[in-house]
């Protein structure tokens, strides 16, 4: 039993970026009492912005570069229930023009993930249904209404469901759907505005064994409503859509029992009212078992 969780642990890291970038559900539970602490860094940049659905140059900004450093913690309370928190520090700056760099702690998120249903067909593989819910809230009063910002300040409720199939060979496939509900925000301009809710879908195809994890993903966000302000004016009420694809990998660091390295990259295929960004990321995972989870047998 212990051994099985060990391999699952590695698998579960695959999309640890998820808490901020791809939603809270990957297909793998942590295992009771396991703790993953992940320190990660990501760099993304864009020099084109989707003005409505059309990518245009942004001469007033040049290239906008964003760096995030995140601390992510997750643990399994039971074999069926995980909880996690994520805390990012974000810095974003334009290469041209007169808009300043913005830098601050961004939005803290906390979530649970539940293995709601599972069916094991042995050699034919296994099917899991996972559900998750999370909240995200700004940690600081960062600027949210300017051409260069680190976030939109809206508190957010995140609910998702995911279905994952795993074959004993290590191949897996997952489909995930979610809904992001955003609270209204009060902008510095002096009034309250809505931030549109959004649908999320994520698809993953990958291979995992106890030493290696590889995952190709597609992440699509469709905002339910929202504005298209003229000439690409960024504003929290905007309808922000995108389709991104990417690859994530987790590899154990040789000679170390507790550490793994996580690498990822992503690029934007299309979007609306958002930068046409590419991203790379890297992180270190420290995994340990300081407790046995709830309901542990003594």
């Amino acid at each position: 039993m212990k051994k099985r969780y060990l391999s699952i642990f590695l698998l579960s890291l695959g999309c640890f970026f998820s808490a901020s970038a791809q939603g809270l559900v990957d297909g793998f539970m942590k295992g009771s009492g396991q703790v993953d602490a992940v320190l990660s860094y990501s760099f993304e940049s864009y020099s084109q912005y989707y003005d409505g659905p059309i990518a245009v140059e942004t001469p007033t900004l040049g290239t906008v570069r964003t760096q995030s450093t995140s601390l992510f913690l997750a643990t399994g309370l039971t074999p069926f229930l995980d909880v996690m928190v994520n805390l990012p520090f974000v810095t974003t700056s334009p290469s041209q023009g007169y808009w300043p760099t913005q830098s601050d702690f961004q939005d803290i998120s906390a979530a649970f993930r539940l293995l709601a249903f599972s069916r094991d067909w042995g050699k034919s593989g296994r099917l899991d249904l996972l559900l998750s819910g999370g909240i995200m809230a700004p940690m600081t009063n960062y600027v949210a209404d300017a051409p260069v910002v680190i976030g939109h300040q809206a508190r957010q409720l995140d609910s998702r469901g995911a279905l994952q199939y795993r074959h004993p060979s290590g191949v897996f496939a997952m489909a995930q759907g979610g809904y992001l509900r955003r609270a209204n925000i009060y902008v510095d301009r002096g009034y309250e505005v809505f931030v549109p809710d959004a649908y999320e879908s994520v698809f993953r195809l990958g291979y995992a064994n106890s030493n290696l994890y590889l995952c190709a993903w597609l992440h699509k966000r469709d905002t339910r409503s929202g504005t298209d302000l003229g000439y690409g004016v960024p504003f929290p009420t905007n309808k922000i859509d995108f389709t991104r694809i990417g690859i994530d990998a987790v590899v154990p660091i040789p000679g170390s029992e507790h550490f793994s390295a996580v690498l990822g990259t992503g690029l934007t295929l299309n979007g609306r009212n958002i930068g046409d960004a590419n991203r790379i990321s890297a992180g270190i995972v420290y995994r340990f078992s300081p407790w046995n989870g709830l309901f542990a047998k003594s």
């Binding site: 069926f80 539940l114 709601a116 249903f117 249904l129 559900l131 819910g133 409720l157 609910s159 998702r160 469901g161 809904y179 509900r181 209204n184 309250e192 809505f194 549109p196 809710d197 339910r224 409503s225």
Partner: peptide, 20 residues
């Protein structure tokens, strides 16, 4: 578990956008 956690999922998605 399935039922308990599906409920908030549905409630969230049914609420209408509020415009002041």
């Amino acid at each position: 578990h399935f039922l308990i956690f599906l409920l908030p999922l549905m409630m969230l998605s049914c609420q209408e956008q509020q415009l002041s």
